[in-house]
Nucleic acid binder design. Structure first.
Lengths: 236, 236
DNA sequence: GAATCTACGGCACCGGGTGCCACAGGGAAA
DNA sequence: TTTCCCTGTGGCACCCGGTGCCGTAGATTC
């Protein structure tokens, strides 16, 4: 049956139109179903709740993000991987700017939808955190850093996305996210992966590490270099 | 009427007991009201929704947090102020460990309550962000840093709170939050008030950053130093 | 003692969400 | 072709959270 996908799309379209025209509270599920030309019962076959009609394929997006993280290259810095995952999430909005903007305007004014969106974001953050946990040792301080790092990346993503939506969804938000993530990961990245090298010899003032590199080097690379340098002279 | 406060407390007590005993979904508002010895209509006079009964004075807490931030000393570093605000939020849980733990166990297993909690947390984060915005210039990069900093502090708070609750709410969580915040603010603080370094001059091979520091220096401090060094020669 | 205010109870109603059964159509196996 | 099954759908009844409205009892004020 080819119409199976149509019904779902018709329902979201009807929902968004009616919400925008008559308001969220004053739009019943009956009205949405009627506009889409199906029965009320069919609506709840496609969406768990009234709010879900606004975020149709959210579960699929989250699953895709999890898949991306699961298949990520194990040698890439973890902070960069979740950064690219943030780009992936952003792309899901940026691929259809018109819908994204309409949904944003709606979400901003309707409380239940806003709460829905917040919980959706928290699920992404949770997925990011779990990914970082898989890559770090289980110490409490590492877990703290993982959660902070995930929160930071999500915050950067949200900032760029919101600014882009507020401006009407014009242009490509990806470069802006890239820049924001560069700024954030420069600080968070090294701190995140900052396990101790060999113990410092506090009594030896000459036991130092010297690093020279071009200005603008990504901080995660700085961290790599410093750790490499630390290990290099480990057996002096 | 002295019983006016009693009814509210009785209702939350009845709700938590019944939720724990019979599950959230299988507990109707009628049952809660009956157990508290009042009518169903009275329940909705005290709480906007069924979930609200579990988080009785959440609005008051948020208001207290806002008040704290509004009356904060203007000369204190912003990152420290929201850190102390996080301690204030933590104290609201830690003041009644038994209730907090019961509520945590409940919240963890019941989805609607978990979503409620998440939106509650997001409100705190929003308040933190707005406070930082009031203290920073309105540039886009400053706003980004504000949001990341607020997210980081909230994440640290959540981590400490959750670990404390998971362990049964024994002991004082404040020292642990203090330590977590020390670790986080050491990285975020300078970055928050510092701003990004100047862009790299890729065509100038002499445009390098040199950092020398004791072996074993935590990586977050390396990042701090590198950024400081980057800014230091900004006007050469 | 009358007026007023506040908290509460009872009631009817709306609407989101679910369970159940029936049915239509299309494809695969007989 | 016939039979069977599977999937998407419609219709119905029902539960329950949440609201509006009105009445009332008790406490307070003048």
């Amino acid at each position: 049956m080819a119409g199976q996908r149509h019904v779902r799309q018709d329902l979201t379209a009807a929902a968004i139109e009616l919400f925008a025209a008559r308001g969220y509270d004053d739009t019943t599920v009956d009205a949405i179903a009627a506009r889409a030309g199906v029965a009320r019962r069919t609506f709840f076959r496609h969406f768990r709740s009234k709010e879900d009609a606004v975020f149709p394929d959210h579960d699929a997006y989250l699953a895709r993000t999890e898949e991306f993280l699961r298949t990520a290259n194990a040698t890439d810095p973890a902070i960069d991987v979740i950064g690219r995952a943030a780009h992936l999430v952003l792309a899901m909005y940026a691929d259809d700017p018109a819908t994204a903007v309409r949904r944003y305007r709606l979400t901003r004014s309707v409380e239940p939808l806003r709460e829905r969106e917040i919980t959706a974001i928290s699920r992404y953050q949770r997925v990011f955190t779990q990914f970082l946990h898989r890559r770090s040792d289980g110490t409490d301080s590492a877990r703290l850093r993982d959660e902070v790092a995930a929160a930071a990346v999500v915050a950067a993503h949200n900032h760029v996305l919101r600014e882009w939506l507020r401006a009407g969804g014009v242009g490509d938000p990806h470069p802006r996210l890239e820049e924001a993530l560069r700024s954030v990961t420069a600080v968070i990245g090294p701190w995140l992966s900052g396990g101790p090298g060999r113990p410092a010899d506090d009594d030896d003032p000459d036991d130092v590490v010297v690093v020279v590199m071009p200005r603008g080097t990504p901080m995660w690379r700085v961290a790599q270099q410093v750790q490499a340098a630390t290990r290099a002279t480990q057996d002096r």
